[in-house]
Design a protein around this nucleic acid. Structure first.
Lengths: 210, 210
DNA sequence: TTGCATTTTTAATATTATATACAATAGTTC
DNA sequence: GAACTATTGTATATAATATTAAAAATGCAA
């Protein structure tokens, strides 16, 4: 495992897919890179190369041990060190994400929500309280929150982003269909459903066109 | 506009970002590729190359006309031809997606939901009825539905996928954190939140580690 | 223990994507 | 209208990525 070596973006995007696939296997068993490649529609060497930067390696004639490969992947992806995050925008999507417990699997724990609507302030979603936007700065500083999730309408995304940045947030997961500007040192990850839809729609059209 | 030429996956993923950015500009005005590149943190030539396969071209010294570029992008991405889709799994996420009206922007219209829970069958979310899973096949065939969205727990994803395929679905948008197998000719687009989270988490760790 | 099949690992090649350099074009100014 | 500048568009070079090919390692069976 040469974890100091930088991993390409493409590789990084594939790692969670490997983990996903491994979950469907017997954790006590072994799996070969060719099997993984076949199941996920990838090249087997690519799979091995990806895994080489993460795992302690497989055994010839046997493959990789499923459970140890899984823990290597989780460790590498940071799923073990759970980080607290807040959600801004307690609309339909925001509330859905707040009540979704699966994120702890991925090292993320939603600890609170924020919304400008006074009617929502004080409500609890899955035990997590919705606060007023005014409290955002203090809350983040007091709890050392580094990740913010934006689920507001597009029109407010920039405003909220600025607020998060001034509260010391280091990374933003943006679900709003808007482009936001942040200073250097702050990371924005756009969960762009539009991107996925674009791929889906385009492929579909091509398939039907032929 | 050479729309017959195939567009790379990376390019395709950038196109919605361009569209997003253009929305924040005056539709009557013009915009240069360098402006777009700077705003989105990309190379200006790349932007021009991407746009060349979509748009009818810009004018030297002026740039691209915002509104016509937007409509070219929308046309190319298939956002104008709205396609009906169904959602399987009316849990938190499923209901959130059913009530999210923004998808029509992207050429997708959720027309119905399906769930195995009898207590949910008959309910309406934003005017769209939730049906029993038994009705899925007939419904899809009668309405010519080609896109299915899976928002069930991971454990049921494969089962639901099989059902969708046998109902004649051509493309599946999978939100369940599971890998699903489909026959050739059916497209799966994984909306893998885990992927986004992986990127986010990894970058965050790297930033803090330095 | 020897040969064989399977699998990882490393190296080499081919492909693709991105960035650089330059030519062409259309406005703008004097 | 001639020179200038901002901008597009293309052709080339570089870098990144993926694939193919070959080598090394391991377990298994005869």
């Amino acid at each position: 495992m040469n974890s100091n070596q930088p991993v390409s973006r493409n590789t990084l995007q594939r790692l969670p897919r490997y983990l996903n696939y491994l979950k469907s296997l017997d954790p006590c068993g072994n799996v070969s890179s060719t099997e993984i490649a076949k199941a996920l529609g990838l090249n087997d060497v690519q799979v091995r190369k990806d895994l080489s930067s993460v795992s302690s390696g497989g055994r010839p004639k046997v493959g990789y041990n499923v459970s140890s490969l899984m823990s290597d992947l989780k460790e590498f992806l940071g799923y073990n060190a759970i980080k607290g995050a807040i959600i801004v925008g307690a609309g339909n999507l925001g509330r859905a994400l707040m009540s979704y417990r699966g994120f702890t699997e991925y090292g993320l724990s939603i600890i609170a929500g924020f919304d400008s609507n006074p009617a929502l302030v004080g409500c609890r979603i899955d035990g997590k309280e919705i606060h007023s936007l005014d409290e955002l700065g203090d809350y983040c500083r007091e709890n050392g929150v580094e990740i913010g999730v934006i689920t507001t309408p597009a029109a407010y995304a920039q405003e909220v982003s600025d607020l998060l940045v001034s509260a010391g947030i280091k990374a933003i997961w943006n679900f709003a269909p808007a482009h936001i500007y942040v200073p250097d040192g702050v990371l924005v990850q756009n969960e762009n459903m539009a991107c996925s839809l674009a791929l889906l729609s385009k492929h579909l059209n091509e398939m039907l066109g032929e």
